[in-house]
Computed example of a mutant assay.
Amino acid sequence: MKTLILFGALLLGTPLYAAQLNLELGADSRTWQTEELLKHPLVQTINIPNDVSYKRDMSYRAVPLAALLTGVKPDDHLQAVALDGFAAELSAAPLLNAQGARAWLAIEDPANPWPPLSEGKHSAGPFYLVWTDPRAGNISPEQWPFEVASIKSMAPVAERFPALLPDPALKADDPVNKGFALFQKNCLACHRLNGAGDSQFGPDLNIPYNPTEYFGADFLKRYIRDPQGLRQWPQAKMPGFSSEVLPDEDLGMLVGYLKHMVGRKAKP
């Protein structure tokens, strides 16, 4: 699709800087064109070792994302929506960091396009949220959305989707509630649960069956660690979650949340 758009632009004589990023941030909303971002005063070349999407070292022209998030506060909640329907739920605080794990908006220059993600696929452009020093912030693969079309200021997930909530009788520091927070960070970008969520990417994780109901023993944990190591097919898209990104204790709490939600099925 992107190739056709660029080809059509050539035929019509329009500039190839047609891609745009919509920032829906209330009073500070605005639209950025590719050409504007490539001329941003803070744009620079950054190097990303072992890029999450390309699985190799990459170099990008990029702008610190915090420089574009005018008016956004650390307690705010954002959602990055990709062209393919991937919807990454993002706490604002890490995106505003100037130290440690730092978020960048990588900008694809149509005059120097990025390689395809795999044979027959598109690139990660026109906009891609990447991180320098991601280990310092325990950044998960789901916090690297590519083909980003918009970044929106949203109400927190718990307010928008009450069907995702654990039993309200649980204490705030209960492991199930901690697992719910991990679910939002690592799973909600691709999956719905009880029909709740904005993504159209992966299957629902509770309706009709929760994975804890059909994965025996510790196979669910093994699957989350290395999906292709448990079952392989060419169209598989789920990334593995290493122990650096999702420590064993966190993985246990995430699975605990899923198991808890078996008793809270709510058909959409």
Rank of each mutant, 00 (worst) to 15 (best):
L4I: 04
L4P: 00
I5P: 00
L6S: 10
L10E: 12
T14F: 07
P15H: 13
A18H: 11
Q20L: 06
N22R: 15
N22L: 14
N22I: 07
L23G: 06
L25N: 03
L25A: 10
G26E: 12
D28E: 14
R30T: 13
R30D: 13
E36W: 06
K39E: 15
H40I: 09
L42V: 09
N47V: 15
N47G: 14
I48C: 13
R56M: 15
Y60C: 02
Y60W: 11
A66Y: 14
A67G: 10
G71D: 09
D76N: 14
H77Q: 10
D84L: 09
F86M: 06
L90R: 06
A92G: 10
L96A: 05
W104D: 04
A106I: 11
A106C: 12
D109W: 13
D109N: 15
A111K: 15
P116E: 07
K121L: 09
A124R: 03
G125T: 06
V130I: 14
W131N: 03
N138T: 12
Q143C: 03
Q143N: 09
Q143F: 02
W144E: 03
P145H: 08
F146P: 00
A149R: 11
S150N: 09
K152D: 12
P156V: 03
A158E: 10
E159T: 11
E159R: 11
P162V: 08
P166D: 02
P168K: 06
P168R: 05
P168T: 04
L170M: 05
K171C: 01
K171R: 08
K171V: 01
A172L: 04
D173E: 12
D173W: 02
K178Q: 14
K178C: 00
A181E: 14
F183P: 00
C187Q: 01
L188A: 08
A189G: 12
R192A: 02
L193R: 01
N194S: 05
N194L: 02
Q200N: 06
G202C: 07
D204C: 03
N206P: 05
N206T: 07
P208M: 11
N210D: 06
P211I: 06
E213C: 04
F215P: 02
F215N: 05
A217L: 07
A217C: 00
A217M: 06
D218R: 11
K221L: 03
K221H: 05
Y223P: 04
P227D: 07
Q228F: 07
L230W: 12
L230I: 14
R231H: 12
Q232W: 15
W233Q: 10
W233H: 15
Q235A: 11
K237W: 09
K237C: 02
P239Q: 11
F241L: 15
D248C: 00
Y257P: 00
Y257I: 01
L258T: 00
H260G: 00
G263F: 01
A266K: 15
P268A: 04
